[in-house]
Simulated scan of single mutants.
Amino acid sequence: MRIIGLAGWSGAGKTTLVRRLIPVLRARGLSVSTVKHAHHDFDVDQPGKDSFEHRQAGAAQVLVSSAKRWALMTEHRGAPEPALAALLARLDPVDLVIVEGFKREEVPKIEIHRAANGKPFLYPEDPLIRALATDAVPPEGAPPAMPLDEVEAIADAALRHAAKF
């Protein structure tokens, strides 16, 4: 499996880019999975559902399955958040895993930068940022840059810079 990270400040367009990248990569014949870091207390389950009630009762894991998909929910119950490597190890093998968020992890990354956010570029502080997807003019000495809307070029960069996991 190969892995590429997408890093950027909140509101830069990481999720929008992931949604646009996946069909482009799949059209090239690649299998793709994603790992998304949530920065807040999120829940994929809903109150009133049996699986929610199982978790509320104290189940460490709840696996929900249907004819179309299955999902495994694991409660940390005070344990530390798993490292990215532990999460990646749970995935079935694919050609490329896109990691959204996890900007401090030791994986090659493409930085997503939107000038309107008013935030600085991340690349000067992260030597693992290999390319930029931005609507701004990057400073002298920045990694190679592509416009945010050139999804094919960003897909090329993702494949070029992805690392073996």
Rank of each mutant, 00 (worst) to 15 (best):
residue 54 H to C: 10
residue 120 P to A: 12
residue 160 R to V: 09
residue 150 E to D: 15
residue 76 H to M: 14
residue 119 K to Y: 04
residue 128 L to N: 13
residue 45 D to V: 08
residue 12 A to T: 10
residue 154 I to R: 00
residue 138 P to V: 07
residue 136 A to C: 10
residue 120 P to R: 09
residue 57 A to T: 10
residue 60 A to N: 10
residue 18 V to W: 08
residue 120 P to S: 05
residue 126 D to E: 12
residue 98 I to G: 02
residue 18 V to T: 14
residue 1 M to D: 12
residue 48 G to I: 09
residue 153 A to W: 02
residue 99 V to K: 07
residue 131 A to Y: 00
residue 106 E to F: 01
residue 61 Q to H: 14
residue 7 A to P: 12
residue 148 L to N: 04
residue 21 L to T: 09
residue 137 V to I: 13
residue 33 S to D: 07
residue 119 K to P: 10
residue 102 F to N: 04
residue 67 A to D: 15
residue 96 L to T: 03
residue 82 P to H: 05
residue 95 D to A: 12
residue 91 L to R: 01
residue 115 A to H: 07
residue 144 P to W: 02
residue 112 I to N: 05
residue 33 S to E: 04
residue 112 I to L: 00
residue 96 L to C: 07
residue 81 E to V: 10
residue 76 H to W: 12
residue 163 A to M: 14
residue 27 A to Q: 13
residue 88 L to V: 11
residue 145 A to K: 04
residue 82 P to T: 04
residue 16 T to E: 08
residue 69 R to D: 15
residue 39 H to P: 11
residue 100 E to F: 03
residue 50 D to M: 03
residue 152 E to F: 05
residue 127 P to K: 06
residue 165 F to D: 13
residue 25 L to V: 10
residue 119 K to V: 12
residue 97 V to I: 14
residue 96 L to S: 02
